[in-house]
Amino acid sequence: MGPVESAAPRTPDPLPTPAAPPIVLILPAACEALTLVHEAARRIAAGAGFDELAADEIAVAVNEAMTNIVEHAYRGEPGHEVTIRFHPSPGGLRVELDHRGESPTRLPLEADPVRLAAERRRGGLGVALMRKLMTRVEHLEPSPGVGRWSLDRRHRHPDGRSGDLR
């Protein structure tokens, strides 16, 4: 199966995978790990040169991907793991979260909280939020049985040109 990617009007090119080894976290696929994931992502993003607001946005997006894996890929079952790789590069930061659970069938482009509230829905915001906070969001299946959220965030061009593609 090919990548599940939201059909944005213009999908930016992915960041090139840097040669340097990534920073890797292997964690239980559990909500209890979300705090650690959030803080690690925020600090790594700041260390990669993102300002405070961008680092917070990246941390929230990674938190949402981890939540999606815990709640949807593994349906809250205990005993599973998530491998998170952070790839800082001159162009920005790629974060990959690998799991062995169920893959999403679609990634919604937008979430309208007014409509969702009218439907008494509590969910449906996470993927749209990831998409709003990151330059590129995909769900891939890099090998049989492995699902991967791949989140890219580019650095803003110093002159404000097309580097920041959000």
Binding site: L34, N63, T67, P113, R120, R121, L125, G126
Partner: peptide, 17 residues
Amino acid sequence: SYVASAGFGAIMGLIED
């Protein structure tokens, strides 16, 4: 300090009631 989509979803699911 932060609210993830789950927190906003809690408000969203209750507000119309």
